[in-house]
Amino acid sequence: MKNLAQLLREHPFFHGMDEEHLEFIARCGQNCIFNRGEYIARENAPADQFYVIRDGKVAVESYVPNHGSLCLQTLHSGDIFGWSWLFPPYLWTFDGRALDEVHAVRLDGKCLRDKCDEDPKLGYALMKRFARIVTDRLHTTRVQLMDVYNQQRPPLDSGQ
């Protein structure tokens, strides 16, 4: 069986990370499995972890009264779930729910936060990776907002 450092090393999120940092991060982590339908995170609950998805599908959801849970995006093998642990007040802003059996590595955000403050090099390496995730999600959200497949939209501007 592979150890955690090995699992993280193979995950695209950690590509190119210093071995020493990787070893440290692995020490903050543990393997976990979520069953289909199980919540990985609940909106407004303390966010002291994040998840490296190894296998399975996670829905990022928000609960809408009179409608139920609205899925905004799905995350898959190779994705990361959760960045709320990085910023005060360290509360989840959305629900995270397993859509099938999800295998993940849970990383202790609190432990990493402290370590990042001590070791800015690790902090920067990690922050760069999260910034990338955030911009990717923002890009996705913007394209979704453009509603490109809906052709019933008002005339375009001048294109300049």
């Binding site: 052709q151 005339p155 001048s158 294109g159």
Partner: peptide, 9 residues
Amino acid sequence: GGSVRPDTR
């Protein structure tokens, strides 16, 4: 949806 060339320019 609209004209590809929407303006005089």
